[in-house]
């Protein structure tokens, strides 16, 4: 018989899907992506437009502040820094909160974890694209950066978003167990905005601040794109092995995080 067979036990909710289930799975994945993106913009008249213009508005505010302060200003660096930082911060929040909606908006029938994971990946990719497209256009038109380099910002931010969200998934269970950590993480995100080279270049950091940023993953994403534009990478003088180790570590942790969703989702189903 062409049935969906489900074995529900303490260890897992294992499903054997019938033939023809893939069409429905595709529809469910699209719905997950649509629903996640829509949830971020549903209360606004301008909807998704806010996702595009928010990083630009924040950048403009900082450019304005630094102009008043007569600080040594590089508007392009600020736009790149803030755009990537916003993707980074949202990916952290999305990763630690992802496990809350383990039913994926479908309330009458269980949907597979595979659908949830693919929906998450799709949402993160589209979210990062929306958040960076405005900055890419501004870089091309206002700063005369060539179009390929400008739009590589979208790729770099997307990779950053996927890796960071995946990493944070590893902590989702711990944070559900100790919700107080959520507050601490919010403060860390805030601190990282000023401690990381978001508003300034890595070149300007010295001493312990420089050492901290050597191991700060967001520095590499931001400075990599700045380096693509200026052809001078601020982290060139750092031991390249550190960069490789950080990227490898993030990749492995992200894979582990996305793969753990099925188990964690199952374990947390009977948690408060």
């Amino acid at each position: 018989m062409n049935y969906l067979i489900r074995h529900i036990s303490q260890n897992e909710c294992k499903e054997t899907m019938p033939e023809g289930a893939s069409t429905r799975e595709r529809a469910l994945i699209k719905y997950q992506i649509w629903n996640n993106i829509r949830n971020q913009s549903r209360n606004y008249r301008l909807g998704l437009v806010w996702l595009v213009i928010n990083p630009l508005i924040t950048s403009l505010i900082y450019v304005f502040v630094f102009t008043i302060m007569r600080a040594n200003l590089n508007a392009m660096n600020i736009i790149i820094g803030i755009t990537i930082y916003r993707v980074f911060a949202q990916s952290i929040k999305s990763g630690i909160a992802s496990i809350r909606d383990y039913r994926g908006g479908i309330l009458a029938e269980r949907i597979s974890s595979q659908v949830l994971v693919r929906g998450m990946l799709g949402s993160r990719i589209i979210n990062a694209q929306f958040q960076t497209i405005g900055a890419s256009i501004v870089l091309t038109i206002m700063f005369k950066v060539d179009i390929l380099t400008s739009f590589s910002l979208m790729i770099i931010a997307t990779i950053c978003g996927l890796l960071i969200e995946g990493c944070m998934l590893n902590f989702a269970k711990l944070i559900r167990n100790l919700p107080d950590l959520n507050n601490i993480i919010q403060h860390i995100i805030q601190l990282l905005f000023y401690a990381s080279p978001v508003l300034y270049s890595f070149d300007r950091t010295v001493g312990i601040h420089r050492l901290f940023n050597t191991y700060n993953p967001i520095m590499y994403f931001i400075e990599f794109h700045r380096g693509l534009i200026s052809n001078e990478f601020a982290f060139e003088n750092i031991n390249q092995n550190i960069f490789l180790i950080i990227i490898l570590f993030l990749t492995l942790m992200a894979i582990r995080g996305y793969r753990s969703i099925d188990r964690v989702r199952w374990e947390l189903s009977t948690w408060p």
Binding site: R6, H7, R110, T270
Partner: peptide, 23 residues
Amino acid sequence: CIAGFLRPSEGIVITRGRIMLLA
């Protein structure tokens, strides 16, 4: 639990076919 929304602490539930829960 039958619908697959809750994890059992012990025991096994085997379902054949699509199960829907209208709660």
